[in-house]
Simulated scan of single mutants.
Amino acid sequence: MLKHIVLAGAVATAASAASAQTEMPFALDWKFEGPAAPYTHAVDAGLFEAQGLSVSITEGAGSLDAIPKVATGAFPVGFADINSVMRFLDQNPDAPVMPVMMVYDKPPFAVVGRISQGVSEPADLEGRTLGAPPPDGAWAQFPIFAAENDLDVDAITVEPVGFPTREPMLAQGEVDAVTGFSFSSTLNLIRLGVPEEDISVILMADYGVDLYGNAIIVNTDFAEANPEAVTGFLTAIAQGWQQAIDNPDAAIEALLKRNPAADADLEKRRLQLAIDANVMTEYVGENGMGNIDPERFAAAIEQTKTVYEFQNEPDAAKFFDDSYLPAGDVLMLK
């Protein structure tokens, strides 16, 4: 009888521990490619579990994809372009969605072209065909890029393309350049057999676009009800990035479990490109991951005003909330 009582108690304790795990499904912006490895690794390494969270990760279909998923409450957390969130909130001021942790301190928005087709710098786009997926985050920022570089947009033929056909069309010469994330389009072209020396990567951040990139976003109703869970989630995110930096092979191994068809070396290189160019910036090295520079963010809002007419007077406090970021040195990546 005592044995049965002890066993029943152990089962009850285990069930209680399992039920204590807060469910937090996470909506990505894109597919299971290299830059998603820190998140899949955080799941497999138990980093979320250590924070009392049960996290599942779902692929996305572009930079705009996660915003409505989180705003509707279908997902409590997601990964999305902060500039697109800003416009979404301007048009839907009561929507319960908010960026809470910056990941791409330097955005990967880019125009990727073929040198053999005459595209090496911004001015080369005039008179040529640009492939742009309508939901693409880089395409959303193209008007700012065009304005900063005095491009005659009427002289550019814009071809709406799908994500699956974007790089193949460029590889086949059907378009002369495409908008996309630098690490995605570049390596997709290499995988398709385009010689690396024939690829030009025009990073918008190097040509006058002073914006931030993708951030972790939360459903604010969920966050207000579960503040410790959100902080725990962000803690595990930072730990996942640090461990991916320290051991990219282990991070890519976790990614390949979700995408067995992926090329390990290619995705490892894609991850490293994101780390070097977008995550581990000088600002992050000095201040840690996750927060923003208020002056830079204010400048980004002003720049957005040049190509987008806000329906309401923009307020930076309505577009980013740092109150859920973990304290201590967990955000200091090295």
Results as ranks from 00 to 15, higher is better:
181 F>P: 10
190 I>W: 11
65 D>P: 05
86 M>R: 07
146 A>D: 04
231 T>H: 07
213 G>Q: 02
23 E>A: 11
232 G>Q: 01
328 G>D: 08
288 G>I: 11
162 G>T: 11
300 A>W: 03
308 Y>N: 03
181 F>N: 11
57 I>K: 08
39 Y>R: 11
18 A>T: 11
118 G>R: 01
186 T>G: 08
217 I>L: 02
132 A>K: 07
126 E>D: 06
208 G>A: 12
285 G>E: 05
20 A>Y: 04
273 L>S: 12
149 N>D: 05
264 A>Y: 15
266 L>K: 14
123 A>M: 13
178 V>D: 01
274 A>M: 08
330 V>R: 04
327 A>P: 09
62 G>D: 06
84 S>G: 11
329 D>W: 10
50 A>Q: 14
8 A>C: 11
67 I>G: 01
283 Y>F: 15
268 K>D: 08
59 E>W: 13
186 T>N: 12
308 Y>K: 02
139 W>Y: 03
31 K>W: 15
75 F>P: 00
148 E>C: 13
263 D>T: 01
144 I>Q: 09
265 D>L: 11
201 V>C: 03
302 E>A: 07
86 M>L: 15
283 Y>A: 13
101 M>W: 06
115 I>T: 07
118 G>K: 01
232 G>I: 03
22 T>L: 07
32 F>M: 09
109 F>R: 01
56 S>R: 05
192 L>H: 03
304 T>C: 07
22 T>H: 04
152 D>K: 02
87 R>E: 13
197 E>T: 10
203 L>S: 15
311 Q>P: 09
271 L>V: 03
186 T>F: 15
248 P>I: 00
154 D>I: 13
169 M>C: 13
264 A>T: 07
213 G>M: 07
195 P>S: 07
238 A>T: 08
54 S>G: 14
64 L>T: 14
247 N>E: 12
54 S>P: 15
288 G>W: 09
20 A>S: 06
140 A>C: 11
190 I>E: 14
164 P>M: 06
306 T>V: 03
100 V>S: 00
2 L>C: 11
206 D>A: 15
104 Y>K: 08
15 A>Y: 13
88 F>T: 03
199 I>Y: 06
134 P>W: 01
259 N>H: 13
3 K>M: 12
